[in-house]
């Protein structure tokens, strides 16, 4: 995974130096009917826990996604618990007094416009995020600063991690996902490679970076890993894109993830 991002960088470097160029073009695209999108997250932190239900829109529309209102949303667990979520804002179903427990399997039940959707996710054990640091990489004509996360991977289980990074409060548009297939039981120092479209938006001194590290289950890893591969355009244009495999049934887009979460912040020096 990390190897692929390095390939991407190298290939970009090679092609840029060989006078590659970009231009915005008009493409003729089919429009599909709106699809139901469910984004459900249950964390080990005190609520509110939120299940968002919206719709996809045609590619040519603006990025405003209609809320699906009036749905009945419940979450159950394998210990007999059952919780009803209420619609706090249109399409946002939440429950304040709820906190997930690692090791439990949660089931999401959604009934929206007379269609029932279900999904299951098991919350992995929590892994502590120890610290963040800055890794300086000499590349592309300047000293490039990247954020590195440090933690200890538990050796007695298979772990998957998903990271979200905010730079000065704005979410970085990159997917950072990895598992411990090659690193089980070790001290991990993963670099969250981030290259903005504009050089001036790369990380610089004084930037406030917040990293959220999630321990996710296998199906959620596959979901994000598939998405991350599609965004990498290696030699020949990369992987043929498709919809990532969702753990929700009845053709809903999105995912339902029970995960633990850790946050740390860092000011770039």
């Amino acid at each position: 995974m990390r190897k692929q991002s390095i390939y991407q960088i190298l290939f970009l470097a090679a092609t840029i130096s060989l006078s590659s160029c970009e231009k915005v073009i008009d493409v003729k695209l089919d429009s599909s009917a709106n699809q139901v999108v469910i984004e459900g997250n249950i964390t080990d932190q005190q609520g509110p826990q939120t299940i968002k239900i919206s719709q996809s829109v045609p590619y040519t529309d603006s990025n405003v996604y209609p809320a699906v209102t009036g749905a009945v949303v419940t979450v159950t667990d394998d210990a007999g618990g059952s919780w009803l979520f209420s619609e706090a804002q249109p399409g946002n179903y939440s429950l304040a007094s709820f906190r997930g427990v690692p090791g439990r399997t949660y089931t999401l039940h959604v009934n929206a416009n007379n269609v029932t959707y279900t999904a299951m996710s098991t919350m992995p054990k929590s892994v502590a995020l120890d610290s963040l640091s800055v890794d300086v990489i000499s590349f592309g004509g300047n000293e490039n600063k990247q954020v590195q996360v440090h933690f200890k991977d538990p050796g007695n289980q298979i772990n998957q991690y998903l990271y979200f990074m905010k730079i000065n409060g704005v979410q970085a548009k990159s997917i950072f996902v990895e598992n411990d297939r090659f690193t089980n039981g070790n001290d991990i120092s993963s670099v969250l490679f981030y290259f903005s479209e504009n050089d001036d938006e790369d990380l610089k001194s004084g930037d406030q970076v917040e990293v959220e590290m999630q321990s996710i289950d296998k199906s959620i890893f596959t979901y994000w890993f598939t998405l991350s591969q599609q965004t990498q355009n290696g030699p020949g244009g990369g992987v043929t894109p498709g919809n990532p495999p969702s753990n929700i049934n009845n053709n809903a887009l999105g995912y339902f993830s029970a995960h633990t979460t850790e946050r740390k912040t860092l000011t770039i020096e």
Partner: peptide, 8 residues
């Protein structure tokens, strides 16, 4: 793509 949506 024929459509788009928002996750994460």
């Amino acid at each position: 793509p024929s459509g788009k949506y928002n996750v994460g």
